[in-house]
Structures are given as C-alpha cells and as structure tokens.
C-alpha cells in the first residue's frame, strides 16, 4: 500500500513536469494546427543549453533558465518564421515532415557539439530528500513540480488575462475569423511558437536533472508527449495537464501493482478507451469536418 501511495505521489510530481513539456506542444497545435514532432528535440535542446551553462559557468541548473528561456523563445520565433510560416497548404501533414526534419537536425547538431555520450545536470537537490509517510521524496521532484505550477500558471494568466492571450485563443478557435476581426495571426503564431519553446526550455532543465540524456533522447520523449496531448485533446492546455497527470500516475501505479513491463500498456488501454468514447480527447473540441 505504501508503494502505491509513493507511486501516486511520484506520478503527480513528475506528471506536472510532463504537463509543462506537453503544454508547449498543445499550444503550438492549437494556434497553428501543426503537429510539432520536433518538440521532444526542443526539450532536449533546452536541457543541453542548460548543460552548456552548467558545465562552463557552473551555474545552478535552475538558474540557467534565466538565460535559456528567453533564448529558446527567440529561437522559437525564428523557427516559426523560417520553417513553419512557409507551409500554406496541407499544414497538418507537412508539419510532421518539417518538424521531424528539424528534430533530426537538432539531434545531429547536438551530437556534433556535445558527442552522443549521456550527460546529466547536477545539483544538490538531485539526491537530497525528505521523509514522508515512511519514504523519501527528492527535492528535485518538488522543485520541478513547483516550476511546472509557476510556468503553467503564467501561461494560463497570459492566455486568459492579456490581450495577446485573447488573440491566441481567437486564433485557436477560428484562424480565419480571427484574421477577419484584425488579429495578426502570423505574429500570434510566431509568439506562440516562442512561448511553446520557452516551456520546452523549462521542462528540459527538470528532465535533464532527473534523467541522463543524450541527443537521441527525444524519441521516447516525443512519443509520450504526443500521447498526452492526444488524450487531453489536441490544443487544450487543461487537457494536457490532466492527461499528463493521468499518464504518469497510471504508469507508476501499474508498475507497482502489475509489472513495469505492462505499465505503458495499461495507459494505452486507457487512452484507447477514452478515444472510443471521446475521439476528440478529454478536453478537445469536436470539429465538424466537410468532406
């Protein structure tokens, strides 16, 4: 029973970090209707940027966010301008190819710069822990969860309390209508991509402290992040948060009660079950399509 309790606690704490990583992905989909399969590579890029600062300047990994978040935001705006904006037709399918190429390019560049050896971000909080109900919780998971809460809270504030957020939501609801009422959707898209990458930087630092990673680590990551946003409903920030928590708690508990080998399978059974009942995902909007 204690193991189950710990699995739930750990699932919630790490689920928060996955929600943070998935939030950028679902936001980018919502605004641009593109599937950014390069998002995992961007998270790893964020982790490597933190690693470069950590290794060369010995800055605490969390403090590196002061540099990496703005840098990744700027890079996101540039990537959107160079790679995404030119896609005018068949965006959903073509975006998969373009962003996958982007992921491979990032992986290759990181492999060249940092080699393909595994690296890890380090801080006192990675092994320091405190007792709760007979087991120990590691500080890094708590800090990661708090960071996720802060960043996701800011994201919700931006989306629901600012004019820019209004423009973003309008673009998410109906891109054409948003253009008709004067929203500069190209500018909104560029900034939203930048925001998505900034959240990737924040997620990357926690991922990098809790996992040894190398340039190829994005494959596992993107498959999980895509699964989360499909379950939550493509384009739904709230859905991404709930789905991330569901995924991590389910897999952790299944690992204890059944077997670690079956943990992902149990989650996929839930995913398929939800999609049968709600094809649009937990919080997705059902789109009426003309064929």
């Amino acid at each position: 029973m204690q193991l189950v309790l710990e699995a739930v606690v750990l699932g919630v704490l790490t689920g928060g970090v996955y929600a943070l990583m998935a939030s950028g992905l679902t936001l980018i989909f919502g605004v641009m209707r593109i599937i950014n399969v390069g998002h995992g590579a961007l998270v790893i890029l964020g982790a490597y940027l933190s690693f470069a600062l950590f290794r060369s300047l010995h800055i605490d990994p969390f403090l590196t966010l002061l540099v990496t978040v703005p840098a990744m935001f700027a890079l996101g705006v540039v990537i959107q301008f160079v790679f995404i904006r030119p896609l005018k037709m068949d965006r959903e399918a073509l975006s998969v190819l373009v962003t996958y190429a982007l992921a491979l390019g990032i992986e290759g560049a990181l492999g060249y710069l940092f080699t393909t050896n595994y690296v890890e971000l380090r801080g006192w909080y990675e092994t320091a822990s405190f007792p709760v109900f007979g087991f120990y919780i590691t500080w890094v998971y708590v800090f990661g969860f708090v960071l996720a809460l802060v960043v996701l809270g800011l994201l919700f504030l931006i989306l629901y309390r600012t004019p820019f957020g209004g423009a973003v939501r309008a673009t998410m609801l109906n891109r054409t209508a948003a253009q008709l009422i004067g929203v500069d959707v190209d500018r909104v898209s560029a900034l939203a991509f930048g925001v998505g990458m900034a959240t990737a930087a924040a997620g990357g630092v926690v991922f990098g402290i809790t996992n040894a990673f190398n340039p190829g680590s994005h494959y596992d990551l993107i498959s999980r992040l895509l699964t989360i946003i499909v379950l939550g409903g493509l384009g739904s920030l709230r859905g991404a948060v709930i789905a991330a928590l569901m995924m991590l708690v389910t897999t952790e508990v299944a690992a204890v009660l059944i077997s670690p080998v079956w943990a992902s399978f149990v989650f996929f059974v839930i995913l398929v079950g939800v999609l049968i009942v709600r094809p649009q995902g937990l919080y997705g909007v059902r789109v009426r399509e003309r064929i």
Partner: peptide, 20 residues
C-alpha cells in the same frame, strides 16, 4: 478534405513507441 489530425499524431506516437 481535412486530415484526421489526432490520428496522425497518435499514429506517430505509436510508431515511435514501437521501437524492433
């Protein structure tokens, strides 16, 4: 005709997670 986006994403996730 619009592409079933969630199917593309879910399919990609499955392909990536299947990796032999």
């Amino acid at each position: 005709m619009r592409k079933p986006v969630s199917m593309i994403a879910a399919g990609f996730a499955l392909v990536l997670s299947a990796c032999g």
